[in-house]
């Protein structure tokens, strides 16, 4: 892994509420979806931070907030010390050079009516000072080569490529401006199993080659473990546990993390009869109306009175080495070796 440097991305108390409104002519706010509700973390140069959590936990909204595709309700996102959340116009455009994204669905993330050359070259059209006009074609071919595609295919259209190849096109587009941070939002989950490893390897190679820092959002816990230096676990808009990859996977302290890890099917049938599995009951509550205190308490087997009253902050708990948002945090190994 690359040497860890100073924080390149600092996220503090990030909050995003989507208002729920009623009425057509006169809009009245009747509530809010608390998609992201007070998330803080740092990302260091060359590092990979994995973000895991189930649908509705706010991880995709978090990605959009980092990319300044959504404006936060409050809180801050700083890249190299520069505030993103309130940047506008030219300032925002400059910020974007440093943070790019790779999206989940390679079928919808590429404009079907643009050639691959136009798609990968568009960053240079938008940021004209990055590459002189005469140089853009060469740069595009170079980028295609870097991600393992034939540079002679610049004049083809996305539909002429397979899913894995399209994802490579998306990665080439994300690399064009030489960003220091790439937000990967489920970059392999839409791909065939036999292709996923290829793309994971490509992302790892590019990280070494260009010193990239990744925010790697995924629901596949084994892929996240493989590529991440640190991992954050989200539940209902909150970060419930954050630590080094080994800390989260080998010594999880938050009950939700433990349940999540134990629920993952292990691709090895040996000893499956004896495998201990924490089956959570019910579904996550609605983010429009989260429980008081700890948000996980409605499904938690450790829940006590304090959990309903006092929200547990994300901090390092006694006897553990990493941050957890549980009043009763304790280590428990739930993954089979």
């Amino acid at each position: 892994m690359a040497a860890m440097g100073e924080p390149i991305l600092e996220v503090r108390d990030l909050v995003k509420y989507f208002p729920l409104t009623r009425g057509i002519v006169v809009r009245k706010q009747i509530g809010a979806i608390r998609a992201v509700d007070g998330v803080s973390f740092d990302l260091r140069r060359g590092e990979t931070l994995g973000i895991v959590g189930e649908s509705g936990c706010g991880k995709s909204t978090l990605a959009k907030l980092l990319m300044a595709l959504e404006r936060p309700t409050s809180g801050s996102v700083r890249i190299n010390g520069r505030e993103v959340a309130r940047a506008r116009g030219g300032e925002l455009k400059r910020v974007r050079r440093n943070i790019q994204m790779v999206m989940q669905d390679p079928y919808t993330s590429l404009n079907p009516r643009m050639t691959v050359g136009d798609i990968v070259g568009e960053p240079f059209e938008i940021h004209r000072d990055v590459a002189p006009k005469g140089d853009r074609r060469r740069r595009v071919r170079e980028l295609l080569e870097v991600v393992g595609l034939d540079p002679d295919h610049v004049n083809r259209y996305p539909h002429q490529f397979s899913g894995g190849q399209r994802q490579r096109i998306g990665i080439a587009r994300g690399l064009a401006l030489r960003p220091e941070i790439i937000v990967c939002d489920e970059p392999v989950s839409a791909l065939d199993v036999s292709i996923q490893a290829q793309v994971v390897n490509l992302l790892a190679r590019l990280q070494d080659e260009f010193g990239l820092a990744y925010v790697f959002i995924a629901h596949d816990l084994s892929v996240v473990r493989h590529i991440s230096d640190r991992v954050g676990v989200m539940y209902l808009g909150k970060m419930v546990e954050l630590g080094k990859e080994t800390e989260i996977y080998d010594r999880p302290t938050h009950p939700y993390t433990q349940a999540l890890l134990s629920a993952v099917p292990v691709p090895n049938p040996e000893g499956r009869e004896r495998r201990e599995r924490i089956i959570l009951h019910g579904d996550p509550p609605s983010p429009a109306d989260p429980p008081s205190g700890c948000r996980f308490r409605t499904r938690c087997w450790k829940a006590a009175e304090i959990c309903a009253v006092e929200e547990p902050p994300l901090r390092i708990r006694p006897g553990t080495g990493h941050a957890s948002a549980c009043h009763f945090a304790e280590t428990r190994d739930v993954t089979p070796a």
Binding site: L69, R96, S109, I126
Partner: peptide
């Protein structure tokens, strides 16, 4: 609503573009 529009916005594309 398509992702490629989101991708263009993330690149900093202007509204007319």
């Amino acid at each position: 609503g398509q992702d490629y529009v989101l991708a263009a916005r993330a690149l900093g594309a202007s509204a007319p573009r």
